[in-house]
Design a protein around this nucleic acid. Structure first.
Lengths: 258, 258
DNA sequence: ACGCCCTTGTGAACGCGTTCACAAAATCGT
DNA sequence: ACGATTTTGTGAACGCGTTCACAAGGGCGT
C-alpha cells in the first residue's frame, strides 16, 4: 500500500473555474500538487548534500514514488529537465516553490497552543519552508502573553483583529473538536480562506474557503483495517504492506533522506 | 472536495474473520476504507444524540460526503440498510467497527513523547475508538519513568523488549526526522507491521509492513498552492467582510453537522 | 389488501490518475 | 562527426473511484 499520505482533501469549491484566472500556470492536477511537496523535500535534501543534478529515477526513489509518475508530474508544471542528464536541483526546487506559492513567505495563524499547537509551532519544517507563524491564539490564561520566536500568544477574543491586521489567509486549527466550528467561523469572518483542521470534525465553510483535514483517528483506523487482515495470513503471501515504491526505497534508500 | 488517499491495496484472498459467521467483506476499495472512519464518527455522534436510524442522505451530510458515495461504500461491506427507512445507527456502527478491526482493542506503541507525542496520547478519540496505548518510548531522561494513564515511559533501549512483550503490531512514530528511520527499523525488527509516521521522511520498510504518513508541511503547502491562486482571482473584492449569504451558509451548515 | 411514497442498492457512464512504452533530445566517447 | 547511450517528455491504454439514474424493496396510510 501506499503509504504515504493520502488525502484527498477537499477543496471546497463548488463551481470550478473552467476559466483560467489571470493565469500563467495551467491546471495542475490535484494529485500532482500533493506530491510536489514531497519532491521539494527530496530536492532540498539533495541540495544540502551538494548534488547539482538528479535524474527522475533517483529523485523518484528519494521521494518514494515511481519515476514515470514523477516525470508526468513535472511535465505538468512545464518542467525544464535535460534529456540524457536529468534535472537541475536548485532550479527545479525554485520552480516548485514558486508553483506552490511558497515564495511569498506566507503568514499563518495557529489557533490552539496546547500540546498539538506547540508541537506544530516547534516543527522545523515550518519556517524553513516558506511559512511564518504570524499569530498564535488560545484561551488559556496561563498561555496568553507568552512568546514564541517573537510571536505573542493572544486571547481568542482578539482573533479577528490579529488575523486582519497581519493579513493572514491561512490558519491551522488545533483546538478541541467542540469549539472547532466556532473558531472556524470566526476565522472565516476575519478573512481566512484556507484552513488546516486537526480537530476531528467536519467543518462547515462557505465555498470560497478551502479546508484540509488531518484526522489522526482515521489514519489509525485505516492502519488497523489492514493490520487486522494481515494477521490472518501466512508470511508467504503478504503483499498487503508496502507499495512498490516503498519496496524500491527499501533497497535503494534507507538513510538517504535524512 | 475531498479526495483522499491513494494507496493501492490489494488484499489477497478473502478469507475473512473467522469469528464472523456471515461476513464476507472482501475486497473493500481503499478509498472506501478511508471513509469508514468518517462514517463511524458521524454514527457515534448520532448515537449519542439518541438517533436510532438514519438515512444515507443525512448520514452523508454529517460525514461530509455525498449520499451516492456513502451508499456505494456501505454496499461494499454488505451493509444492511432498510429501503424506505435507512440504516440502524448502532448496528451499522458495530458493523463498521468490526470491519476496521476495532473490536480487538488494538495495542499501539507511541514512540516519541515530546509535544507531538503528548498531544497524540492525550487525544480523546484514541482510547474511545478501539485503540489502547500500550507502550510509550522516548530517550529523554526527564521523561522516562513518568506515567500516563497507567503506562510508563520507557527508554528507547527497551523498545524491542516492550513491543514484543505487549504483542504490539501498530506503532506511531513521533520523533525527529533524523532518527525516524532508525526507530522504524527497530520497530520492524521487533515485529511491528503497521506504522503511522509523523516524521517528514520517507521510511524504508520491508514489504510486509504498512506505512502511512502524516505530513504537516505537505498539507500546508497544498493549501498554499490553492490559496495563492485564489488571491489572484479575488484582488478586486476583499472578503474581509464576507457576504451575508456566505456567513449564513456557515451558520446553517454548522448546525447540521455536529 | 393495495397502492403510494420513500430510500436503498447497483449497473453503467464518466473522469481522473497511474502506468506503459517509446520517440525525441542531449551528452559522451571515439 | 557520428553512433552509442542515457534520460526526458508524452501519447495511449488501463484501472480505480465517483457520479448518475433508476429499478427493487419495504413501510405506511387508507
Amino acid at each position: 500500500m501506499t503509504a504515504q499520505g493520502d488525502q484527498l482533501s477537499q477543496v471546497g469549491e463548488g463551481a470550478n473555474r473552467p476559466s483560467l484566472p489571470s493565469g500563467e500556470q495551467r491546471d495542475i492536477p490535484e494529485a500532482t500538487v500533493a506530491r510536489l511537496a514531497l519532491y521539494l523535500r527530496a530536492l532540498t535534501s539533495l541540495a544540502e548534500r551538494g548534488t547539482a543534478t538528479v535524474s527522475s529515477d533517483s529523485l523518484a526513489t528519494a521521494a518514494g514514488v515511481n519515476s514515470a509518475k514523477l516525470r508526468k508530474d513535472l511535465s505538468h508544471l512545464g518542467s525544464y529537465g535535460v534529456r540524457g542528464v536529468g534535472y537541475d536541483v536548485s532550479l527545479l526546487s525554485q520552480h516548485i516553490q514558486r508553483t506552490l506559492g511558497l515564495d511569498e513567505n506566507r503568514a499563518v495563524a495557529l489557533i490552539g497552543f496546547g500540546h498539538l499547537g506547540q508541537a506544530l509551532a516547534g516543527y522545523a519544517g515550518f519556517a524553513s519552508r516558506g511559512f511564518r507563524i504570524a499569530a498564535i491564539i488560545d484561551t488559556d490564561p496561563e498561555l496568553i502573553g507568552s512568546r514564541l520566536r517573537g510571536v505573542t500568544v493572544e486571547h481568542a477574543d482578539r482573533l479577528a483583529e490579529v488575523v486582519r491586521r497581519a493579513q493572514i489567509s491561512i490558519a491551522v486549527i488545533a483546538v478541541p473538536a467542540a469549539v472547532a466550528q466556532e473558531v472556524c467561523d470566526r476565522l472565516v469572518a476575519a478573512g481566512v480562506t484556507s484552513i488546516l483542521n486537526f480537530a476531528p470534525t467536519v467543518l462547515g465553510v462557505p465555498e470560497h474557503v478551502d479546508v484540509r483535514k488531518v484526522d489522526l483517528a482515521a489514519e489509525l483506523q485505516i492502519l488497523s483495517f489492514h493490520d487486522s487482515r494481515k494477521s490472518h495470513k501466512t508470511l508467504s503471501n503478504n503483499f498487503v504492506g508496502a507499495t512498490v515504491d516503498q519496496r524500491m526505497s527499501v533497497v535503494a534508500k534507507s538513510g538517504v533522506i535524512s
